[in-house]
Write a protein that binds this DNA or RNA. Structure first.
Lengths: 339, 339
DNA sequence: CCAGGGCCTCGAAACGTTTCCGGCTGTCCG
DNA sequence: CGGACAGCCGGAAACGTTTCGAGGCCCTGG
């Protein structure tokens, strides 16, 4: 087993354990003579010494572990975000502890407890509903915390976000420019800033242009393709003339909606134009290729990791909140009205 | 900060720290009188005591952390697997540390080092290429390790896998039963058991039936949709009559291939039938809905977590290797020849 | 020749738990 | 009435590091 301890290598060299500790430390090894340092390093390699980070953490008060909480691991958008986090942390020698809250407040609370007990150095969470604000504020008061992807306005917690209002507006302007005047949006779950922002940006832009905006909701917890199916059903059941263009609050919803609409005999984009959100992998490869609002997932994750690191280092002065701007990607799922 | 320590609550109750420890421990609290136990619990709650798992780990030699290594976080198949792992661990109070090796042996080695230094209680890895066998065997000798998804034949490491040979055969039999006689397979990266198994199962079944099987390879590291595009290009460049049916080694490859074939004027399934592998989310919603070989990702993850837990508990006697059987899901991307 | 510094090293005290060991109280039985 | 025994608790030693204070040595300058 990895039983070889620092004392073993110190004894092997004939030196005190404190000296061995300094010799192997990357920042304090100038306090030791080059000769002993080399001898200690050799002995460590020879004996197969592996520092015990638990003991080190106990003494130094730093574990080198960052807690990462995501709402739903099935959401394809989360992959790039996690990669960004993991790679940024790995570059600094830290490791992420990762769990999924399934967007449940109870689970979130339990996870936070466990992570605090593990004495993580910081927490990155993408799982913040409005109802979790108090919990997350409490957590943030105990350990450096940053919100990623989802914002929690008024919480005062540092955030790496993106401008959902602009995103919604981009979608609206695109559809309006194609001549659509009866529009609808397939809404994501409530109590989450991302979807509220998208909804507001979209509705406002549509109404400012004098067009019609119908909000379609369904009682779903997670914004998955199944939710998209349900929302599309409701769209089909709408009284009056059917909207000719739809803004889905994310790509999964869009894909689910396109599918049920197709089953009902409506083809996208000929009968109905659809814009998604996120630009997750594979959306460009499907039929029709999805017009969507792109979010830099990897970058979001990377920046969140870097922000939590600077908070840990105590640089409170640096920017607390970064807002990335979304970008419209036009593909085949939207088409000019009447063509 | 979470500065309140066990000594604080012990002092608050007027009891020794060892007694407080016993009172709060879930298995040893029978050694303390019900009265003091309740008083300690109250004090702990009142003071907001949070056990320091670092210190506990140091003393007990168990950290409660399991290392999880995945090859590629972008692979949509990995989401369900991670969910299975996380949920199974969470039920037992453990937490997963998660990182991505990007299928690089160097990164894998570094990650293993870091995890061993963190003294994880066990490791679950889906990132085993043939070239990593020696490394993983060394790791497995230091800490309970299980392979998930990807097997490493001859390594002797406990494994939760699935029968890729059968999976390949299922794909072949399906296509053969539709009357196809010129078949091809779009191969995943080399040096990985999953893809080799699929390839062998497919080729063997095809050739046993007297049909033609063309293996198409490309120099790609990861089995992504981009790889699917490249492989489809090669398929198009093939001399002689074009295959009428294709087995893609996973769904991403299939989707990439369908897309490039479409750009080249070939539609699936009319001109060419395609079978995928994994049945990742959304494959049933796209056009055409993908015929694929389903793998129980969540179950794989869950079983892997449970296996590593029994190994940690020292039950060497239990089954070392579990092999789940894949299942063919027929959808719209395959069609009878000549219709 | 001596005082004063650098340099290097050592010893010991932490960090917050868990666990072993032993001692105290009270009860029950011979 | 005395001893055994169970139940409960306190003291202290670990777990493996890091860090603080102090001391030994050698070299230099006055």
């Amino acid at each position: 087993m990895g039983r070889v301890t620092l004392k073993d290598v110190a004894d092997h060299v004939g030196v005190n354990v404190s000296t061995a500790s300094r010799a192997l430390s990357h920042d304090r090894n100038s306090l030791v003579s080059p000769d002993t340092r080399r001898r200690v390093e050799d002995a460590a390699r020879e004996l197969g010494y592996r520092g015990n980070l638990q003991a080190s953490a106990l003494r130094r008060g730093r574990t080198g572990i960052i807690g990462v909480i995501v709402a739903d691991l099935n959401n394809p958008f989360i992959g790039p975000v996690l990669r960004g986090v993991a790679n940024a942390l790995g570059g600094r020698g830290l490791l992420p502890i990762m769990t999924e809250s399934r967007d449940s407040s109870d689970e979130l609370a339990q996870i936070c407890d466990k992570m605090l007990a593990q004495r993580v150095d910081g927490i990155i969470t993408t799982a913040g509903r409005y109802g979790d604000r108090a919990l997350l504020k409490r957590v943030a008061s105990e350990v450096p915390t940053v919100l990623a992807v989802r914002q929690l306005p008024g919480s005062g917690i540092p955030t790496i976000g993106h401008d959902d209002t602009v995103g919604g507006r981009l979608a609206a302007e695109h559809l309006l420019s194609l001549g659509h005047t009866r529009l609808a949006q397939l809404m994501g779950p409530e109590d989450i800033w991302s979807f509220e922002g998208r909804a507001n940006g979209f509705r406002r832009a549509v109404e400012d242009a004098g067009a019609m905006c119908t909000d379609i909701q369904a009682a779903v917890r997670l914004p998955t393709s199944d939710a998209g199916c349900q929302l599309a059903e409701r769209l089909l059941g709408l009284p009056g003339e059917r909207p000719t263009a739809v803004f889905a609050h994310n790509d999964s919803i869009a894909i689910g909606a396109i599918d049920t609409l197709r089953r009902a005999g409506l083809t996208c984009p000929d009968d109905i134009s659809i814009v998604g959100f996120n630009d997750v992998p594979l959306t460009d490869k499907i039929l029709p290729p999805l017009t969507t609002v792109r979010l830099p997932g990897y970058e979001l994750g990377r920046l969140a990791a870097e922000l939590v690191l600077t908070r840990i280092d105590g640089n409170d002065g640096s920017a607390n909140t970064v807002m990335l701007t979304p970008e419209l990607v036009v593909r085949g799922s939207t088409i000019e009205l009447g063509t």
